[in-house]
Amino acid sequence: MDELKNIAPELSKLKKEVPFSTPKNYFDDFSARMQTRMQTEKQGEPEHKPKIIQLLKPFIGLAASFALIFLLVYVPLKTFITSEINEVTVNIDHSDTDSEFLNILEGIDESSFFALLDESESETTDDFTNEELMSYVSANFTDYEIFEFTKNN
């Protein structure tokens, strides 16, 4: 009190009254109101019987999250990445065959290139001689087969 007089003389002169009041019989009724609220709280408390859905909840949640992750990862991969991969492989195929052909052409000198052309022309235009044909037939067919063939024609 002396301390208060020293630091706050005006305040220490005031009466220590709390200028508040309450409704009539507030404290008489409060306990009964509190009991009513407690009863409501007790009734409102959820039952603790575990239901099947509650037991399965964590597993369902886990499965759902896996499915979600799968969808989020697999679908974009399938739609975007595969089309890109196809494009790349097609490009690679084209470029491979083209470049291989060019490499072969570059590897051949001019004279041997024309010699090759002449050779292929001669192969296509030249006929077999009778002697060559005779030796081929006698080497690959029996007399009987030749007889049969000539008899039918």
Binding site: L11, L14, E17, P19, F20, S21, T22, P23
Partner: peptide, 11 residues
């Protein structure tokens, strides 16, 4: 339910 006088209001 507040019934203070002038000085109590000030406080």
């Amino acid at each position: 339910y507040f019934n203070g006088d002038e000085i109590q209001i000030k406080l």
